[in-house]
C-alpha cells in the first residue's frame, strides 16, 4: 500500500472510530463506515490539512469511498 493510502487510512480510522481492516478500497464512508454528511465534510478537511491540498466542494462530493479519496489525493499531489 502506498504512503498516501496509509495516511488516508489513518485519518479515516481516527475520525470515524472504525477498525483498520474495514477501510477497504470500495468501503463507502457513509454506507459502510458509519459516517454522516458532516463527518464527510470533516474528513475532506482533514485530507486537505494532511496533504496540503485544496479539495473544491464539487470534487469533495465525488469522494465517496476510501478508494476515491486515495485516487483524488494521488492525482492532486
Amino acid at each position: 500500500m502506498s504512503d498516501i493510502a496509509d495516511r488516508v487510512k489513518k485519518i479515516v480510522v481516527e475520525h470515524l472510530s472504525v477498525e483498520e481492516d474495514k477501510v477497504t478500497e470500495n468501503a463507502s464512508f457513509i454506507d459502510d463506515l458509519g459516517a454522516d454528511s458532516l463527518d464527510t465534510v470533516e474528513l475532506v478537511m482533514a485530507f486537505e490539512e494532511e496533504f496540503g491540498i485544496e479539495i473544491p466542494d464539487d470534487a469533495a462530493e465525488t469522494i465517496q469511498t476510501f478508494g476515491d479519496a486515495c485516487k483524488f489525493i494521488t492525482d492532486a499531489s
Binding site: L38, V41, E42, M45, E48, E49, E54
Partner: peptide, 10 residues
Amino acid sequence: PRRVSPFFIP
C-alpha cells in the same frame, strides 16, 4: 474559514 469544523456550531 475552510478549517472551521462542521461540528463547531452543533
